[in-house]
Design a protein around this nucleic acid. Structure first.
Lengths: 234, 234
DNA sequence: CGCTCCTTTTAACCTTACATTAACAAAAAT
DNA sequence: ATTTTTGTTAATGTAAGGTTAAAAGGAGCG
């Protein structure tokens, strides 16, 4: 695909273990940035683009989950692997909630880690074909700037969108005229699929419809039991 | 959401463990087919469409890996999770080689398994890009879009179809001008063949006929005791 | 701290959509 | 002629979605 080395952000407070792991990964052709704690990890994350984050869960000042949440706010796509000291169920579940792609129990087998890294990066690579950095959309008479979170109608005054409004409208726009499955929004935006998140989503659909009323050619249709469809009538 | 329970193929030779696991999964709203060995597993796999396969590695006659290879030959997409008795590195690596999506060491935590299942099925759902052509049919003067569940006559206003209406019309269209056996619709759509589902189907046939009246060249004929036939007269 | 403002969730109430079942008529088979 | 199958409409019960308002969180700030 490309001979570009994949970049990994490794956040691990144990200096010995961290260094060993870093060297091992570098030996296997990854470019590794090693941060010694959560704070530093977040700083480095913001500075660079990474293909994968490996986060230790147990760290002073800022644990892996908190860091993951912050990372997820900036980037919903980057794969995250957690390192946990032992099999703690709570950890695992919590990890999935913040959008972990996998987790590993220390001590773990290094070859297994390599396989996981390969599998995950490859997976994301195939997924990302369509998810290419798209933040600006034309929706009928509207312009949505999803990075700056505003929606403007016919060059008028832009209206600010809340994070959830923005993400939801963006997902709909990505699937313009096509089905945007309920499940997709719930897992991608709410990271949980239950009765309440589902109702919450309905509330946001109502809000978006209110914004979009300005252009009667634009509407959000429901497909019962499946999801929603943003249609632009011509 | 009722008629789209996710279907899991569970292949596990230990009858106790297998039954417990099956029950647990069913309690969590999955439809589970339990095969007691690799052979049976493959047979069942060929007969049905599954959303996920959970394979025990250690089985007599045909181990999980061999089965996985056979499954992969028929279907490159279906997610596979392996159950291994203990952390055996070779197993894990071999599993990834045949395209495993994940693996679990027995004994494992059931909640963790559930989370993994959820994560994997959802991942696949988002990956699966629109295989559109499968869902669009021309029926005389009508266009049926089976994914978005609408039926349009001569470019007019599309009418929305309910899930059952949609599935039934799609099945009929797939057998255009040919017999669509009653039993086929009942097993594929209603997943059950009895007096009531059969009457329910008749009700839906009536509904479809009403929609299709717009084009007098299109009709649904009954073949007494056999099924229905969607004919397009020229 | 407590107080804003903004966002998100939860609750409440109402409407629409769906699937099933019942009921009765008509057609076909025996 | 009578039993079985199909045609059709209507009634029923439940689930999903639409909408608004109130409650709960959360970040920033005096």
């Amino acid at each position: 695909m490309e001979d570009q080395k994949k970049r990994i952000l490794l956040v691990e407070d144990d200096p010995n273990f961290g260094t060993v792991l870093k060297d091992y990964l570098m030996m296997n052709d990854y470019e590794v940035t090693h941060a010694k704690n959560g704070m530093e990890g977040f700083e480095k994350f913001k500075k660079d683009d990474f293909d994968l984050c490996i986060l230790d869960v147990m760290m002073p000042y800022k644990d892996g989950f908190t860091l993951a949440k912050e990372i997820r706010e900036k980037n919903t796509d980057v794969p995250i692997i957690f390192l946990t000291a032992k099999t703690m169920k709570e950890d695992v579940l919590r990890g999935y909630k913040v959008g972990a792609d996998d987790y590993l129990n220390k001590p773990f087998d290094s070859e297994v880690l390599l396989m996981k890294i390969k599998a995950i990066i490859q997976r994301k690579a195939t997924e990302t074909i369509s998810d290419s950095k798209q933040f600006e959309f034309k929706i009928g008479g509207f312009d949505l700037n999803s990075k700056l979170r505003f929606l403007r109608f016919k060059g008028g005054e832009p209206v600010k969108l809340s994070p959830k409004e923005n993400e939801l409208l963006r997902l709909l726009a990505l699937h313009e005229n096509d089905l945007m499955p309920r499940e997709l929004a719930l897992t991608k935006i709410w990271r949980d699929d239950n009765y309440f998140t589902s109702r919450s989503m309905d509330v946001y659909i109502a809000k978006l419809r209110k914004y979009l009323k300005l252009d009667e050619k634009v509407e959000i249709l429901n497909i019962h039991g499946e999801g929603f469809r943003l249609v632009i009538n011509t």
